[in-house]
Amino acid sequence: MNSMDVRVVREKIEHINALPTIPKVLNRLLAVIENPRVSLNEISSFISSDPALTTKVLRMVNSPVYGFPGRISSVNQAVILLGLTVVKGLLLGVSVFELMQKTMTGLWEHSIGTALFARLIALRTGHREPDEVSVDGLLHDIGKVFLVLQFPEEYQRALTQTKEDGIIIHEAEKNHFSTTHASVGSWMARKWRFPTKLIDVIEYHHKPHLTKSTPVESAIVHIADILVRARGFGFPGDDLMTPVQPEAWDLLKLTDRDILEILEEAEDSLQITEDLTL
């Protein structure tokens, strides 16, 4: 089987903002997010100036994914409570929501489920920024959106291979693209100037033992991804389990009781999250 040259993929990402497949609305948003000096006020105004975006952001922020159910009634309040990093990630999340739904059925549910589990694991392990980790979970598979949009036929072949050969999508991607959604996602994230930690987690969520800068966050998203798959919620590209990285498991020191309790905490929210259309 001939694999695509990885340089072809990288080349497309270098010119990602000019790609016709990326919607204009997203481009405008990215211009705001990419600006390292953008202020909370500017972001707040940007969101507030678009009623559709305002609704989406508030719905997202009041969903179980962010843990403020029902308490946030204005964009300003959201922006102040969550902070710049989380709001930027959230903005991106609501913007790619439609793209995710168009490119892979079940990917949005998988992503939002991962955000939810990531937040619960972060809280349980005493992480100081559970909402940031939640954003990491939400966006960890963003590379898949790009690959499907840019190379739909090739990606379809990768998806078919997961079923025929019983391998996870990550492996099929390697076979077809010489790279994976983790690397692609991290290149996109870098191009769009996501926070450094988020770039790192996107890159390492399948190999959390290899990152020097975000071992904990990557481990959390790694395990959140596994739990969402185990629970059968959403569809990440295959219907199988990724084996857990033992170092990541040991780092977080989760017990079977922890897993059971996290599953219980997530259950109600999963139901609500499943119906979260923006």
Binding site: I226, R229, A230, P243, V244, D256, I259
Partner: peptide, 21 residues
């Protein structure tokens, strides 16, 4: 779902917890 990872470290713990859930 778990068939191919049976026996790998911690995967049985996870499977059992999900099963119980």
């Amino acid at each position: 779902r778990f068939r191919l990872v049976a026996g790998q470290p911690h995967m049985d713990i996870i499977r059992k917890a999900v099963r119980k859930h």
